[in-house]
Amino acid sequence: MSILSTPSTAGVPAGTDPPPPAYDGTSPFPDDGPPSVRDSAARIYVSITAVIVVLPFVGLGLVGWLLWGRLVHPVDIVLAAVLYTVTGLGVTVGFHRGLTHGSYRADRPLRIALAVAGSMSFQGDVIGWVATHRRHHAFTDRPGDPHSPYRYGTHLWGQLHGLADAHVGWLFRNEQTPPDLPHARLRSRGGTPIAPDLLADPDIRAVSRAFPWLCLLTLALPFGLGWAIGGSWLYGVTGLLWAGLVRIALLHHVTWSVNSLCHMIGDRPFRTRRHDRATNLWPLALLSFGESWHNLHHADPTSARHGVDRGQIDPSAAVIRLFERVGWVRDVHWPTPDRVAARRT
């Protein structure tokens, strides 16, 4: 990731980075400097991203064609629901609330299992995912945020452009967040690596390296299970389409909607930092396993529960509670009434 361009470096001591430009909350973000990786590496990165983003859409097209002939089986829907739940909770409980924010401490087998399940969501390797999300919290909705819908300003065209960019466009910019090097924009963290805890964890490093194989596994499982349960290769193909590609596409867009819609549409009952416009968006609550109670999350990032008000469904918090009761997690950061009240607007 490159350093923000600035109009002048006068007065900056040698060997230090210039301060980032001031941000007024409405202007487009300053342009970044040149990519910090070779052109060939950038092309490979964009190509892999395109496959990850486009492949599930190909699956949707195939499913549409198959549905024209009514070729769908109950086993496909069951497999899709089960794998959506397992991989989705791997992202929300494992990647997000556990590894990114430290909302609880998990026993080693559970920590590994959640990291594997999250990796099977096709959303990137676990260390890269965590590094990017920590950067998002360090610079929410201001220069440095990897996927803010306010990147292009607050006028109408800027908002429309920003919404599309925050949803999926940011994935095609070669703006990786190095987890192993001090990041120029992370001065609030004292110039330390953004994910030193994960880099020091051999289990998580192993899961991160295994990401390509876990992507193959997340497609092979529904094919193999569909064939085994249905008794023919045709069941395997429909299982791959519904419980593989369509399931991945749906989870992708739900996750990306938290990045985009949950910073533009919804309620903001809790105070967040300056320029942070995270919102609560109830229609996404169930599909996102409680992640769309995004305003409280940004007001209190380490809280294990995001939906704290009456009627706010938070399946991820319920799963963490279950893990706590069976003794698999500890030191859970549950919100208290006083802590919640102190953050209300």
Rank of each mutant, 00 (worst) to 15 (best):
L217F: 01
L71R: 15
G224Y: 12
V207T: 06
S303H: 01
H73E: 09
G311Q: 13
T16N: 08
P335C: 09
V37K: 10
V168C: 10
P34N: 06
D32F: 14
A138N: 15
D125T: 08
L60H: 00
H298T: 01
A10F: 14
Q312Y: 00
R305F: 02
T218C: 14
V319C: 07
L186H: 13
L286Y: 08
R209N: 09
H306K: 14
G239H: 08
D31K: 15
D203W: 15
G230R: 10
P35K: 09
D125C: 09
S208L: 04
A41G: 11
Q159Y: 05
L186C: 05
L114R: 05
H306N: 15
R43A: 03
D331R: 15
A243N: 00
L181C: 01
H73F: 13
G69Q: 15
L296M: 11
V319F: 13
V258S: 03
S36L: 14
V63H: 04
G169Q: 04
L62P: 00
D141W: 04
D201R: 11
F223S: 07
P13M: 03
V237R: 02
C215Q: 08
L241W: 10
I77T: 12
G69R: 15
E324L: 11
A318P: 03
F29G: 01
R268H: 06
P13D: 00
G90L: 10
Y84V: 06
V12S: 10
G94H: 04
G33I: 02
L225I: 04
R173T: 02
P149T: 02
A115K: 11
L99Q: 09
T100W: 02
P301K: 06
S40A: 13
L286G: 04
T6I: 06
T85Q: 09
L216G: 15
R274P: 02
G90I: 08
F57R: 02
H137A: 07
V168D: 11
P301A: 12
V246T: 13
D76F: 11
F122L: 13
G61I: 04
I313L: 15
H297M: 02
T345N: 13
G162D: 03
N174K: 08
L60N: 03
S257D: 05
D39R: 15
D141R: 03
A41L: 03
L62Q: 04
L89I: 14
S27E: 12
R271L: 12
L261C: 03
P315C: 03
A341N: 13
A42I: 00
T279W: 00
I313A: 12
H183Q: 13
P35I: 10
D125Q: 08
L284P: 04
F223T: 08
L217C: 01
L225S: 06
D125P: 13
G90Q: 10
D107V: 11
M264T: 11
A81Y: 06
T16I: 09
R273W: 04
